[in-house]
Design a binder for these strands. Structure first.
Length: 504
RNA sequence: GUCCCCUUCGUCUAGAGGCCUAGGACACCUGGUUUUCAUCCAGGCAACAGGGGUUCGAAACCCCUAGGGGACGCCA
């Protein structure tokens, strides 16, 4: 019997996501249960969005949750490198092999042409996809274009008839018609592979036996299976987990929920509670016990106990669980130690000191002044927002716009933030002083406080956004209709500066 | 629009044809303990999406409908 090997393959394009931890947990448990290995691979083939900072944060977050990997970019292993950006040559060789075998072809189509084709197909109510335009190019034409240095990608060929049968560990065979499968780009014009190629090549080379991943991948499984076939490799066992959901059942997103693991860390949740909670999303202990460690989960693990309905990530139960850990699992001494570790993060405190020092006369002033950096949501109600000129509606608008605006900030720095807010206030034609008022209440719980811009900068995006969201709710919330209008206003306000951004 | 997946209390779930009058947990409500509050304890509210089959028997199996979600990128 071959050794079971599973992996988590995050893309370092943002904050460490609870969904990543969720999938990692199940891969980890499956591997450990079978005495196998769990591998961490960084999928950073998106040069534009991937960052080292994000990679470091993801590693730290998974470590915090005690999900330890046997091989990875930090600790190496026999099948490295474990960072896709360092494996370009491997992909190039493999894609060349596909080209030689006639399983892939060069494509010189422009983005404009592809958009037009897609639009046309949509109008004709067809499944949008590549129309095979460049497949008809002769070998000479291709050589000519390549010699002329024309930008191009490499696409995989896909059968036009028949269907693909996907075996999944958790469901009946899934059948997808090949006609529904697009001629996926395997190699981008920058010479780097897309997910589909890199993933298949790496999983094979790294001897991954079981691919446990989110349900969102089911539809692209045929592409992957076809690639295994083209290469003449045995495909790993596939297993698609349900997706974590927002309260409205849509896929968990940071717009509607705090999704970054860092948020839960900074809000004072214990890693053992967070991982335990993730373990009860779609899975349960055979004896029904709800408080369990990762070790206990491994000992009792059975992938078939996964239920397929997408679980709503509702933190009420996490709160209860965390409370149990705090009071049942920690001695007073341990509590003290863990609390101190959490509260006295010198890096965070160092940022706060310059803000409060000018305002204190005694150390005893510190907690009342800076307490909001360490608390959860400030204790506020609708009256907290009473203002001489701004109505609740005005304030709601400001809060929502700011929530949206700070999401777009890539370079999270105080000055960048300040500039963004000043600009936004200007466009709204509200005096900055008034504009900041609801932010003070939302963030610090009071208008008598340290600079709110600095506060947001220090709290970070997740914590700040959660407070803005909380404040909006306190102010009565925004209806779906209002939301739409606000969104429209916001878009026109942002104008050309607006740029799309992923939600994960 | 096309394709795919899913569907048990508000939420997380148990349930592999008779053990189901559907169990547990969170939340909520009530009561008890507690100088208050919290904890803790006891109790309560609350669900098999709908319709057809199959079967002696269906929450479980099949079909249809509805609802929800996902995928359709030179993102992963």
């Amino acid at each position: 019997m071959t050794t079971v090997r599973t992996r988590i393959a995050p893309s370092p394009t943002g904050d460490p996501h609870v969904g990543t931890a969720y999938i990692a947990l199940f891969n980890y448990c499956f591997a450990r249960q079978h005495g196998g290995q769990f591998i961490l691979r960084i999928e950073d083939t998106d040069q534009v969005r991937s960052t080292r900072k994000s990679e470091e944060d993801i590693l730290a977050a998974l470590k915090w949750l005690q999900l330890e990997w046997d091989e990875g970019p930090d600790c190496g292993g026999p099948y490295g490198p474990y960072r896709q950006s360092e494996r370009s040559e491997i992909y190039r060789e493999h894609v060349q092999h596909l080209l030689d075998k006639g399983h892939a072809f060069h494509c010189f189509c422009t983005a404009e042409r592809l958009d037009a084709v897609r639009k046309q197909q949509m109008e004709n109510k067809q499944q949008p996809g590549y129309d095979g335009h460049c497949m008809s190019l002769s070998a000479e034409e291709v050589q000519q274009k390549l010699a002329a240095g024309e930008p191009h990608v490499i696409r995989m060929k896909v059968p036009r008839e028949g269907k693909c049968v996907i075996k999944d560990l958790l469901r009946e065979d899934v059948e997808i018609e090949w006609s529904q499968v697009d001629m996926q780009v395997l190699m981008k014009s920058d010479g780097l592979p897309t997910y589909h190629l890199a993933n298949v090549v790496d999983d094979h080379l790294m001897k991954i036996t079981h691919v446990i991943r989110g349900e969102e991948w089911i539809n692209s499984a045929p592409k992957h299976l076809l690639l295994y076939q083209y290469f003449g490799w045995e495909a790993p066992v596939l297993c698609h987990m349900p997706l974590l959901r927002n309260a409205d059942k849509s896929k968990l997103s940071k717009r509607k929920n705090p999704t970054s693991i860092g948020y839960y860390q900074r809000m004072g949740y214990l890693p053992e509670a967070v991982i335990n909670y993730l373990g009860m999303m779609g899975w349960s202990m055979p004896d029904g016990n709800e408080k369990f460690s990762v070790q206990e989960m491994v000992a009792n693990f059975d992938i078939h106990r996964v239920s397929l309905g997408g679980p709503v990530f509702d933190t009420q139960k996490l709160d209860w669980l965390n409370g149990r850990y705090l009071r049942e699992s920690l001695s007073d001494e341990e509590f003290l130690q863990r609390y101190a570790e959490w509260a006295l993060r010198t890096d965070a405190l160092r940022q706060i000191v310059p803000l409060i020092k000018p305002r204190v006369e005694r150390f005893s002033d510190v907690v009342p002044l800076a307490g909001f950096f360490f608390s959860g949501m400030p204790a506020i109600n609708a009256e907290s927002f009473a203002h001489k000129t701004l109505s609740a509606e005005d304030q709601l608008k400001i809060l929502q716009f700011v929530a949206w605006r700070i999401e777009e900030i890539k370079d999270w720095k105080r000055d960048v933030l300040e500039q963004a807010l000043v600009e936004l206030a200007g466009k709204l034609e509200i005096k900055i002083r008034d504009f900041l008022y609801p932010l003070f209440i939302a963030i610090a719980g009071t208008a008598v406080s340290t600079s709110v811009i600095d506060s947001i900068a220090i709290l970070g995006l997740d914590l700040s956004r959660a407070r803005l969201r909380h404040a909006m709710q306190v102010l009565g919330g925004v209806s779906g209709k209002q939301q739409k209008k606000l969104e429209k206003d916001y878009q026109s306000l942002r104008g050309a500066a607006q740029q799309g951004e992923g939600d994960n």
